[in-house]
């Protein structure tokens, strides 16, 4: 094994461990009656918050590459993205099972009438679609260009997740806006190479 690959596997193991830690903590809380007086609400929000945090980390990979030039970072992007989708699936499962207890009428009414749930569900569907098309074989079959276009849908999923988070809070609360600000920075950094190119062009002309 090359030294580079060894480092890759070490990093990968660390990512696995870190991404499973919130779930392990949740299980510990469940076993120790630590879910507050409103366990359903606590679990739902806990899973949703971790889905957003890990999604943001996945969206930070490209900016890290742009700002540091460390190309190897891209090799971890899929894994982190899949963990984000994993927590979104848990979040929605907890909403359906624990919060609504399979009351499909109530769930449908929520999706249709409550904008923050509509937006959240749309974000969830996009992330599921991206997770399902994350296999290397599918990348090959679709062709790099088409696949890349498709997976730029993650920007939309991220923006909708941020809106979902802002909309569910009461009063003016700073926390979801901090998340939205970080997302804006992460997406904005992606414009840096394009701006550099434009500058070069302008200088050449």
């Amino acid at each position: 094994m090359r030294a580079e690959d060894k480092i890759f596997w070490v990093f990968k193991s660390i990512i696995w461990a870190l991404c499973l830690l919130p779930l392990a903590w949740l299980i510990w809380l469940i076993l120790n009656q630590g879910l507050t007086a409103n366990p359903a609400e606590f679990m739902n929000r806990y899973l949703g918050e971790w889905a957003i945090r890990i999604l943001w980390v996945a969206l930070a990979v490209t900016p890290v590459k742009i700002l540091t030039g460390w190309k190897q970072a891209l090799r971890f992007r899929r894994l982190i993205g899949l963990f984000a989708s994993f927590y979104v699936v848990l979040h929605v499962t907890s909403y359906v099972v624990v919060d609504q207890y399979f009351d499909w009428t109530a769930i449908w009414n929520d999706i249709v009438k409550r904008v923050y749930i509509t937006v959240g569900m749309a974000s969830f569907l996009i992330l599921i679609a991206l997770a399902a098309t994350s296999w290397s074989s599918i990348v090959k079959r679709l062709g790099g260009k088409v696949w890349k276009r498709l997976h730029q849908g993650v920007y939309l999923a991220g923006i909708m997740a941020a809106i979902h988070f802002i909309m569910m809070r009461k009063g003016f609360q700073i926390e979801p806006f901090i998340y939205a600000g970080i997302l804006a920075a992460l997406l904005g950094t992606r414009l840096v190479p394009h701006l550099k190119k434009l500058k070069k062009k302008a200088a050449a002309a």
């Binding site: 007086a37 366990p39 359903a40 099972v97 624990v98 207890y101 409550r114 904008v115 923050y116």
Partner: peptide, 23 residues
């Protein structure tokens, strides 16, 4: 406007098979 008021969760109320209090 953002959520239904038709149901409520009684904290500490009877739990279902998943161990959670249904609405």
């Amino acid at each position: 406007p953002r959520w239904s008021q038709a149901k409520e969760r009684r904290l500490g109320g009877p739990t279902n098979i998943f161990g959670f209090t249904p609405k």
